[in-house]
Amino acid sequence: MVWNTLADNINYAVAMVLFCIGFYTLIIRSNLIKKIIGLMVMQVSVFFFLVSVGYLDAGRAPIVVPGEPPSAMVNPLPQAMILTAIVIAVSTTALFLSLALRFYRHYGTLDMDKAKEDQR
C-alpha cells in the first residue's frame, strides 16, 4: 500500500531526496561556492515538487487551443508560482555570489572556517 503510493508519487519522492542532498551539501561543506550549490539544489527540488503537483495525467500545456476541452490542460497555478520563485532564486543566488566574491577578496579564502574572526 505504502509502496504503491510511493510509486505513484515517485516525482515527489525524488524531489524530497534532492532536497535532502542539497541540505546535506549545505551543512557539510565549508566551501562557500559548494554551499551555494547545495542551496540551489534545494531550491530546484522544491520547484520540481511544485511542478509535479500541477501535473495532470495525459494533460497538455495550458495554452488555449480552440476546439480542445479546457479540462485536459495541466494546472497553470504552480507554473506561475514557480516562475515567480525562479526569479527569486536567481536574485538570491546572484547576491550570494557577489557576497562570496567580496568575501574571497577580503579573506583570501572561500572557506568560512579558515577565515579568521579578528581580520577586518
Partner: peptide
C-alpha cells in the same frame, strides 16, 4: 570584511529558511 562575513552567515541560515517556507 566583518559585515560581509555577518551577511553570509545570515544568508546561510535565512535562504534555506525561505526555501523551507516555500516547501
Amino acid at each position: 570584511g566583518l559585515p560581509i562575513r555577518a551577511a553570509i552567515k545570515y544568508m546561510l541560515m535565512a535562504v534555506p529558511a525561505a526555501i523551507v517556507v516555500l516547501l
